[in-house]
């Protein structure tokens, strides 16, 4: 019997991502990997580790810090960076506010989501990064579904969806002028379920808040928000202790938890396979603003 040399879908996705990461390392002078401590950027970092093993990852990682973090995620970030021996750059929204670059939103629905864009673009400019890896996936959101793996950004970091470079085969065009940069999305073709299956298959460590735990939360706009030092319930919003987990990890003030008893990666996979809500729809207030909220933010330079 002849062997067919079949590769599983996870192996194909992994190979494609590693190919993209190596291509960027070979063709760009100053790449950086955007690392939030969320599961997608954790998988991306793992793929970068694999791409260059046994050498170290040949570029730094950058965290866009809104200041509204989950403590578990920060510990995880620092531990991972130390293990890999990579340099960590922190671009802080608080610093942008303190420098008067941006003005903090006020009111009960205030968030630092939009302000991240300034911190991100400032970080890219300050360190003269010419390529920034992001963990975005095309299945997340419909504007993302149309974005290239290599997403060209002009001097202002803006994305022009109507003027994207055709992207064929596995031939990526990273040419750009000084001041311009490219966002690179090695996980473009992964789905939420693929990420979880990969985490299970590879035994990838992720912050504990992705698994079911008891937490004090309150309901707002149909989401369960955690009570933290940065966010307290308003009038009529009742605090309850529930068993929840996070499907996405972002700014703690706008990322909702979901009720869940999934305490292991296998249970999470079962839950993800059965869910009828997208992860951003279920848990991200930032995408609920308008139908084109993501597109509008991306045009301004968002992730």
């Amino acid at each position: 019997m002849s062997t067919t040399y079949e590769l599983s879908h996870l192996r194909v996705l992994e190979s494609e991502s590693i190919h993209i990461i190596r291509e960027v390392a070979a063709e760009f002078e100053r790449p950086v990997l955007l690392f939030s401590g969320g599961k997608d950027s954790i998988v991306m970092l793992r793929l970068a580790e694999k791409a260059f093993w046994p050498a170290r990852i040949p570029f730094p990682v950058m965290h866009i810090d809104t200041g509204h973090n989950f403590a578990e995620v920060m510990e995880f970030r620092d531990r991972r960076v130390a293990e890999l021996g990579v340099k960590l750059v922190v671009a802080s929204v608080q610093a942008s506010i303190d420098a008067g670059r941006v003005v903090e939103e006020t009111g009960p629905r205030a968030s630092r989501n939009r302000l991240q864009t300034t911190a991100l673009l400032d970080g890219i400019e300050e360190h003269r990064f010419d390529a920034a890896f992001g963990g975005a996936r095309r299945d997340e959101e419909k504007a993302r579904a149309k974005e290239r793996v290599y997403s060209f950004r002009d001097d202002f970091g803006q994305w022009d969806p109507k003027n994207q470079r055709p992207e064929l085969w596995s031939l990526y065009n990273g040419r750009h002028k000084p001041g311009e940069h490219i966002r690179v999305f090695p996980l473009s073709n992964w789905t939420e379920l693929d990420i979880w299956q990969y985490i299970a298959a590879e035994d990838v460590a992720i912050p504990s808040i992705y698994y079911a735990h008891r937490r004090e939360v309150f309901r707002r706009d149909g989401m369960l928000l955690a009570v933290t030092e940065h966010l307290t319930p308003g009038e009529g919003e009742e605090i309850v202790e529930m068993t929840v987990r996070y499907r996405t990890v972002g700014d703690a003030t706008i990322t909702g938890a979901v009720e869940s008893n999934a305490a292991t990666v296998e249970q999470v996979i079962e839950e993800v396979a059965a869910t009828r809500l997208t992860e951003r729809g279920a848990t991200r207030a930032d995408d609920r603003v308008t139908e084109a909220a993501m597109e509008d933010r991306k045009k301004e330079g968002y992730f």
Binding site: E141, K142, A143, R144, A145, K146, P161, K162, Q164, E291, A292, E295, D296
Partner: peptide
Amino acid sequence: DGLRAEREQGITID
């Protein structure tokens, strides 16, 4: 058809 222009014009751009 995820882009604003696509929905407004009822076309698929990309």
